[in-house]
Design a protein around this nucleic acid. Structure first.
Length: 267
DNA sequence: AATCCCTTCAACCGCCGTCTC
DNA sequence: TGAGACGGCGGTTGAAGGGAT
């Protein structure tokens, strides 16, 4: 990799970075992450790009709480596969391994706490207790040595309704971005708009679509919604003809087909 | 109103398997 | 066939939100 480790950005992604990543995945497919990391001008590792895409930006992702049938499926599959999160995730379209892993940790911990509480209250040593609303009991230990912290009682399946916007959840997804200094852009108001889903990925995709309409020099090589990666031929043709790869390594923001200004004006 | 504590989840790390040369 | 590069996976961490006190 051409990028110096120390110049690599870490931490939360900004809207602009997301936009860049989405654009480049749209162009090149979701396979060659190191290439995308270099070409996009993002100071991120290929790994980081992949993770952001897989766990957050992929348009095929479902957002919000797991449906009851999904919860049951997770329980069933976990009893079958254990902590093979990616394997479990594959059975739940639109859900990521990270999401399921987090779900398992938080909800199983709750369930374990509840179990513990019930056990300590009831003199009965019965171990057949299952969470009141759960129809599935796992046959193996619930938690892998999870620390038990006594908390307020709450039902394991306390769904409480989905109150988050499709993409922007309760808290901002752009923790350390520079919108505070960019007072003119729509992004500058984003944090207050977040509850209303200020700028969802749908919108980003829409924008990318309209950009392509505007400028016929930018053509996707695959349809992100079909998740078909570009063929190698297309890829190579594209690379050799569209980008001036002579400088290699660094196709920086100057070659990014959308300028920062255009980007902010679209926000 | 201020502070504390708990919960959530995005993102990082390290390891391992696969691919490419 | 071996080495290096890369991608995928599971475990873990830490920032931020929000409820409780």
């Amino acid at each position: 990799m051409g990028q110096d480790e120390e110049t690599m950005r870490k931490g939360p992604w900004t809207e602009h970075e997301d936009f860049q990543l989405v654009f480049h995945v749209h162009m090149f497919g979701d396979r060659r992450w190191d290439f995308i990391a270099n070409v996009s001008g993002l100071k991120r590792t290929g790994k980081s790009c992949r993770l952001r895409w897989v766990n957050y930006l992929n348009p095929g992702l479902k957002r919000g709480k797991l449906a009851p049938h999904e919860e049951r499926l997770v329980l069933e599959l976990h009893s079958k596969f254990g902590n093979r999160w990616s394997k479990i995730a594959r059975k739940l379209p639109g859900r990521t391994d990270n999401e399921i892993k987090n779900y398992w940790r938080t909800h199983m911990r709750k369930k374990a706490q509840e179990k513990k509480r019930v056990a300590s209250r009831s003199p009965s040593p019965s171990l057949s207790h299952c969470s009141s609303s759960s129809s599935v009991c796992t046959s193996q230990p619930i938690i892998d040595s999870m620390p038990m912290i006594e908390t307020k009682e709450r039902s394991f399946y306390d769904t409480g309704g989905v109150k988050m916007a499709p993409v922007m959840k309760g808290k901002s997804n752009y923790k350390n971005d520079n919108r505070k200094t960019d007072t003119n852009s729509r992004a500058s108001n984003c944090s207050s708009d977040i509850q209303e889903g200020c700028y969802s990925m749908d919108e980003i995709w829409k924008d990318i679509g309209s950009l392509e309409d505007d400028d016929d020099s930018i053509k996707p090589v695959f349809d992100p919604y079909t998740e078909i990666a570009p063929s190698l031929t297309t890829w190579d043709n594209y690379v050799s003809s569209s980008w001036m790869m002579s400088g290699q390594d660094e196709l920086s923001m100057t070659t990014f087909p959308i300028t920062s200004q255009q980007f902010s004006s679209r926000l």
